[in-house]
């Protein structure tokens, strides 16, 4: 397994754990109130810090174990896989934005809209990483 693929696995697991906790633990009962927005802010802070710490530690650990692979530049297959993943991530992002636009007309509060947009970004990221991991496993850029 290449260094980039390992990094993708770490990112996938970290994002699922961090944002899984966020969406499960979020106090949905107060989402419509102004306090819901502050709850999001308060919860996003540890989520962001946890992701940064986990990624930094995992990247450093893997780079120390396989320095030669860590220093390799992205080649044409890596780039093709990257582009394909980003392409598929566009769809959940667009759907999420449209759902957020419709939510505006249903008088959804700012915290609900924030969480809808956040969910769209998280789903898009999971789609991007998932597609890239699938293509890395398959070996072919598609």
């Amino acid at each position: 397994m290449s260094f980039r693929e390992k990094i993708h696995w770490v990112t996938l697991v970290t994002m699922i754990a961090a944002f899984g906790w966020y969406f499960l633990a979020y106090p949905w009962g107060i989402a419509a109130s102004p306090a819901g927005l502050w709850a999001s802010a308060g919860m996003l802070l540890p989520v962001t810090v946890a992701i940064i710490i986990a990624m930094t530690i995992a990247s450093a650990w893997m780079a120390i174990r396989t320095p030669a692979e860590a220093n390799l530049k992205e080649d044409e297959r890596d780039r093709s896989i990257h582009y394909r993943g980003t392409h598929y991530a566009y769809y959940p992002l667009v759907v999420g934005v449209w759902v957020s636009i419709f939510a505006l007309f249903w008088n959804a509060g700012p915290a609900v809209q924030l969480n809808l947009l956040l969910a769209a970004v998280v789903l898009a990221e999971l789609m991007r990483i998932g597609v890239q991991l699938y293509l890395y496993r398959r070996g072919w850029h598609g």
Binding site: S2, D75, E76, D78, G139, W140
Partner: peptide
């Protein structure tokens, strides 16, 4: 060649068409 070992393996196995 300037690519990773994994890319050479994918080309060899006919899973990836190189530029």
């Amino acid at each position: 060649v300037g690519v990773t070992r994994q890319t050479i393996a994918a080309i060899e196995q006919g899973k990836y068409s190189p530029s």
